[in-house]
Structures are given as structure tokens and as C-alpha cells.
């Protein structure tokens, strides 16, 4: 049979398949050492150095105790914050990707929308906060809106750039196969633009956290940003620092989660 004839012509070494797994990159010892050194410096300064205003500089044990005692409040605050962050960020990601794919692949849309995008994207989203609060009925809605604006532009811009930078052969291939526009966008352009999309999502997520906490400083009555602002007003600096540390940890964890998804989704990128 034809298969046998042809199989006899070629001998193939089969390499071991690469697994598509969830994996974290373990940081090296240099990084851990540096963080330990910073903590040591913090503890050293707060114990041995005579500071002009010791109340402003809580030591590590004091901060940890404050962190422990306000943990329930902080967790509740995180839930509250995430109810702003999640809808704002994910609607921005969904819309940014969709619109980015369309604009990146359609000449006339690109010509129509890009000048506006170039003008609107660099406007710092924080300037919308007072207006959004005045305009929208609840604080949550206005904060969601601001987070959306902040995350939308990086996702959109990166998606459009990724779609436009796709190698021509992917497009030619799709044309020869006769893919419909919809499956071309979904199965080819989206996948090819995914490295760009993830970098846009990373920038968008970092910006979302900034905007979320800034918005909460303005007008929230709960949430991570509000927690920090609240205890600063009472000059309860151990709790304030605990709030900063906790917010940092939440941000780090969220970014780490995104990185994990990215590494799994982009296994084919060399």
C-alpha cells in the first residue's frame, strides 16, 4: 500500500512530547537574599536607630501583629475591592481583545479609530475619577468604570499591534484554507496575537490595581485603598503599613496568577 511504500522511505526519530503544564518559575537565591536583607534593614532601623517620630515607623513584629488582628477586615476589604476589580478588568480585557482584533485586521477601522486611540489612550485614567463619581449613581459603578478605562487601552493597543504584526504566512494560509472571518479571528489572529495580548493584560492589571486603590482613597467606605486611608487618618501607622503590605501581597498574587495562565497559554512561543 501507499502508506507502506512511503513509510519505508522515511525513518522518523520521535522526540519526547513536551507537556503543557502549570508551572511556576522559582526565583533564585539572589532575589530571596535581597528581600531578606531589606527586611533586616527595616527591623534594624526600627530597633536600633533613634528616629524622630517612632510612631511613623512600626517594626516588623508590630506590623505583623496589626496585620494579624486586622486580617478579617482586610479580607473583607479584598472581597469588596475585587467586586470592583473583576468586572472592570475582565470587561476591559474582553472588549479590548475583541475590538483590538477587529481594528488590527481591518484597514478602514484602523484608519478611523487609531487617531482617536492615540489621543485618548495617554490621558491618565485617574482624571476621570471625580467625574465618574459625579456622573454614575454608585461609587462601585464609577470605580468599575475607571478600572475599565485604565485596563482597556493597554489591552486594546497591544492586541491591535499583535494582530497587525502577525506573520503574513498565517494570513495567506487562512486565505487558502478559506477560513471564515470569524474563525480566522478566533483561531488564527487571536492565537498569533496572544503574546502581545498577555503583555497588554499584564500592564492593564497593574494599572487596575493602581486605579482601584486611588479610587478607593477618594470615595469608598470599604476596600483595600480605603483601609489604608482610614488608618492613616487615625494615625494608626502599624495598621496602615499592614494594609500596604497586604495590598502588595494581593497584587503580587494576582500578577503571579496571570503569569501562570500566560506561561501555560504561550507554551508554543519560543
Amino acid at each position: 500500500m501507499i502508506e507502506d511504500t512511503i513509510a519505508s522511505l522515511v525513518q522518523v526519530p520521535v522526540s519526547r512530547p513536551r507537556e503543557r503544564t502549570w508551572s511556576f518559575r522559582i526565583p533564585g537565591w539572589e532575589g530571596a537574599l535581597f528581600i531578606l536583607a531589606l527586611l533586616g534593614l527595616w527591623q534594624g532601623i526600627t530597633t536600633w536607630v533613634k528616629l524622630p517620630n517612632p510612631a511613623l515607623f512600626p517594626s516588623i513584629p508590630v506590623t505583623l501583629r496589626a496585620l494579624w488582628s486586622s486580617l478579617p477586615e482586610l479580607l473583607k476589604g479584598t472581597c469588596y475591592s475585587f467586586r470592583i476589580l473583576v468586572p472592570g478588568y475582565f470587561s476591559a480585557v474582553a472588549l479590548g481583545i475583541l475590538w483590538g482584533l477587529l481594528v488590527g485586521t481591518t484597514g478602514w477601522l484602523h484608519r478611523t479609530f487609531s487617531p482617536f486611540a492615540r489621543a485618548a489612550a495617554p490621558v491618565p485614567p485617574t482624571v476621570f475619577i471625580p467625574y465618574a463619581i459625579a456622573l454614575l449613581p454608585t461609587f462601585r459603578l464609577s470605580a468599575i468604570f475607571v478600572v475599565f478605562i485604565g485596563a482597556f487601552w493597554p489591552v486594546f493597543i497591544n492586541t491591535a499591534a499583535g494582530a497587525a504584526a502577525m506573520p503574513c504566512r498565517h494570513r495567506d494560509n487562512a486565505r487558502i484554507l478559506g477560513l471564515s472571518r470569524c474563525s480566522y479571528l478566533r483561531r488564527v489572529v487571536f492565537r498569533a496575537a496572544l503574546p502581545h495580548i498577555f503583555s497588554g493584560m499584564g500592564v492593564g492589571l497593574a494599572l487596575s490595581f493602581i486605579l482601584l486603590t486611588v479610587a478607593e482613597l477618594f470615595g469608598a467606605n470599604a476596600g483595600l485603598g480605603h483601609f489604608v486611608q482610614y488608618y492613616a487618618d487615625f494615625a494608626d501607622y502599624p495598621r496602615m503599613v499592614a494594609g500596604i503590605v497586604f495590598t502588595g501581597a494581593v497584587t503580587l498574587l494576582s500578577m503571579g496568577l496571570l503569569e501562570l495562565v500566560k506561561r501555560r497559554a504561550l507554551f508554543w512561543v519560543r
Binding site: 501507499i2 502508506e3 512511503i6 513509510a7 522511505l9 522515511v10 525513518q11 522518523v12 526519530p13 520521535v14 522526540s15 512530547p17 513536551r18 507554551f267 508554543w268 519560543r270
Partner: peptide, 18 residues
């Protein structure tokens, strides 16, 4: 795939091949 002598490689990705 078998017809071109690549039997058993179906679940591999292009970057895993020579």
C-alpha cells in the same frame, strides 16, 4: 501523518519537530 512517515507524532507541536 503516517503516509508521510510521521506516525505517532500527531499530538506534537511544530516546534517540537526538526
Amino acid at each position: 501523518l503516517a503516509a508521510v512517515g510521521l506516525q505517532g507524532t500527531g499530538r506534537q507541536y511544530p516546534f517540537e519537530l526538526s
